[in-house]
């Protein structure tokens, strides 16, 4: 790739690559190179999507998945940031929980499904709980390292100018200085959340994941693809909105 490629030219090529991929896929099926039982025909997807939409199914499952997603995201992000920032600022708390965090960190969110069901039953809270776990760790580590790497000079400035209380330093130095890292963690969590949404719904909680399981048991691969694209689209939308907010919050950056 030449470094002098302009942005619009780059976008154009990316679009061409995507179109070529879909076209090859379509041709492979039509020419019989690929069996129709393996993957659906791309050109059939818009119509399948339309049927899902007018049946009201699409809106229903998307709405309930969005519910799990946003509750899990909110919970995981706020707890992750709180614990991460606290750990970076309070050495005693850091020491106290360090081994516990190391122990729990490698456990994948989906391994919590049994407990989620025992604790919450098969209901939206269970799905939100599972989603929140992955989101928690991403935000925890991002916030922790963001606060840890703040230039100690800023803290000295705050002290020299009478901002000595913990809360003043937190709001005037630590949080704004760590904001780029914390927002980066939030954005990564936004993607991580979608990855666990589908899995968290596989055991019977209504949502996109459950609809995909239903469809796949009927070998309706076209419906599965509709919801794959739905997730991609929702992620792109959320990521875009977040990026706009991030850019506004960090407009002080060079």
């Amino acid at each position: 790739m030449s470094p002098t490629m302009t942005r619009s030219r780059r976008s154009l090529m990316s679009a061409a690559g995507l179109v070529a991929f879909v076209l090859l896929w379509e041709l492979a099926l039509r020419s019989g190179l690929l069996s129709g039982s393996l993957v659906p025909l791309p050109s059939s997807i818009p119509q399948v999507f339309w049927y899902e939409l007018i049946d009201g199914i699409w809106l229903d499952v998307v709405r309930s998945s969005l519910g799990h997603y946003s509750v899990g995201l909110l919970l995981g992000s706020s707890l992750g940031i709180t614990v991460g920032v606290a750990a970076a600022l309070l050495p005693r708390f850091d020491a106290l929980h360090a081994w516990l965090a190391r122990l729990l960190r490698p456990i994948p969110p989906l391994a919590w499904i049994p407990f989620a069901i025992i604790w919450f039953g098969i209901n939206p809270s269970a799905a939100a709980f599972i989603i929140s776990i992955g989101v928690f760790w991403i935000n925890y580590f991002a916030s922790y390292s963001a606060v840890h790497s703040i230039d100690p000079g800023f803290d000295e400035v705050a002290q020299a100018f009478g901002q000595r209380r913990f809360l003043s330093r937190l709001t005037k130095v630590n949080l704004p200085a760590a904001a780029p890292g914390i927002l980066g963690g939030l954005r990564a969590g936004l993607g991580q959340g979608w990855m666990t949404v589908v899995a968290a719904e596989l055991f019977g909680i209504p949502g996109i994941g459950q609809r995909m399981m239903e469809a796949s048991s009927l070998l309706a691969t076209d419906i599965v693809v509709v919801y794959m694209l739905t997730i991609a689209g929702l992620y792109a939308l959320f990521d875009f909105l977040f990026m706009m907010m991030q850019r506004r919050l960090l407009r002080w950056q060079p």
């Binding site: 000079g153 400035v157 901002q163 005037k172 704004p176 904001a179 002080w252 060079p254």
Partner: peptide, 22 residues
């Protein structure tokens, strides 16, 4: 300080206001 150590997330004026807060 030796380095200006302004808070990059504050505008020039609000940097000057830091010590006046509280």
């Amino acid at each position: 300080f030796q380095a200006p150590r302004l808070f990059p997330w504050r505008r020039v004026r609000t940097n000057v206001e830091l010590g006046l807060e509280g």
